[in-house]
Amino acid sequence: MEGGRLAHGRASGRARSADGTLQLDFRLPAELGGEGGGTTPEQLFAAGYAASFHATLSVLARETGADPAALTVTVTVAVGPDPAGAGSVLRTEIAVAWPGVGDVRRLVERAKTLCPYAKLG
Rank of each mutant, 00 (worst) to 15 (best):
R27Y: 01
R27I: 09
R27M: 10
L28F: 01
P29S: 05
A30N: 00
E31P: 05
L32V: 05
G33A: 12
E35V: 13
E35A: 14
G36A: 07
G36L: 11
G37K: 01
G37V: 09
G37F: 06
G37I: 09
T39H: 15
T39Y: 15
T40G: 05
T40I: 09
T40Y: 10
T40D: 02
E42M: 01
E42V: 03
Q43D: 12
L44A: 14
F45C: 05
A46N: 04
A46R: 04
A47L: 15
A47T: 14
A50R: 02
A50T: 07
S52K: 02
T56E: 05
T56W: 04
T56R: 07
T56G: 05
S58N: 11
V59P: 07
R62Y: 12
R62K: 13
R62A: 15
E63R: 15
E63Y: 13
E63W: 12
T64A: 12
T64P: 01
G65C: 11
A66W: 08
A66Y: 08
D67Q: 11
D67L: 14
A70C: 05
A70F: 11
T72F: 07
T72S: 15
T72H: 14
V73S: 06
T74W: 04
T74M: 08
T74F: 08
V75D: 03
V75Y: 03
A78T: 10
G80M: 02
D82G: 04
D82L: 04
D82F: 02
P83H: 08
A84G: 06
G85N: 05
A86F: 01
A86C: 01
G87C: 09
G87D: 13
G87K: 09
S88L: 13
L90G: 04
L90A: 08
R91P: 02
I94L: 12
I94E: 11
A95V: 14
V96R: 00
A97K: 02
W98Y: 07
P99L: 03
P99Y: 05
V101D: 03
G102D: 15
G102E: 15
R105W: 00
R105Q: 06
